[in-house]
Amino acid sequence: MVIHLRYRIYDLFINIILVLIGLMCFFPMLYVVSVSLTPYEEYLRQGGIVLFPAKVTFEAYVQFWKEPYIAQCFRNTVFITVFGTMCNVIVTVLMAYALSRKNLLFRKFFLFYCLIPLLITGGVVPTYLIVRNTGLLNSLSALIIPTLVSPYILMITRTFFSNIDESLYESARIDGASEFKILFAIILPISMPILATIGLMYGVGHWNQYYASLMYISDSSKRTLQVVLREMLNRASRMESDIVVPTRTLQMAGVVVSAVPIILVYPFLQRYFTQGIMLGAIKG
């Protein structure tokens, strides 16, 4: 009884801490959304602290949508996030699967080779030169191909595949399955958690793509959303006579548009994170 009570107090304590941490994470988001929906005058009247807008207006969003090239940039960001992530996951899974197989020829060499970029990066200028010399400059592919495989994510995926029980592979081989059949019909269906995880990691990276877009894309219509947002926020500190400094509500609308879509993806992938990795994979 005493132990039971002690556990309940412990649970309560943990829950209170988690709720507090949750609120700490939630309030900045609530603030950003609330400010973006509040009329600017109202925002000023409230002294800049608005948690629940008394009046709601979408004026800031309408204004944000009038920024030059915003629609194209939004489309570009969605494209590189969806298509880029697909490419990332496909290539990473293929590489990780091969590296996880103990019978791969020169396995140690390939593993070491894949580890090199984890320890040493190419640097800004050499990477720029590669992108330029491969003709990728000023195309959306420059935001996808140079980052097709992340060595860090590759290693995570490889470790996941390595930890799958060898008997699963053996039984598939006994049934006459090829390597492709094993990967796509046996391994991938039980690898949803890792696919969701790496998909999300790549997806968030693409969605937040900023520096590469700035470096490799000179055509304003091919840039990503984050670049537009940055330019808009920069304007707030410029002092040119022509510039109309964007209001805080407009800035927050920009933050919402550029952050919320990717945040909304999380709940859909959450179940894969919490799912048992090998649940039901081996029977008998």
């Binding site: 490419c87 290539v91 491969t134 003709g135 990728l136 400059l137 000023n138 195309s139 959306l140 592919s141 420059a142 996808i144 191909i145 097709l148 000179s218 055509d219 304003s220 219509s221 091919k222």
Partner: peptide, 16 residues
């Protein structure tokens, strides 16, 4: 990988 590179080449423009 070659397919991806080709996709790139097709979508590359010399400037805008």
């Amino acid at each position: 990988i070659i397919a991806l590179v080709l996709t790139t080449a097709c979508s590359t423009s010399s400037g805008s």
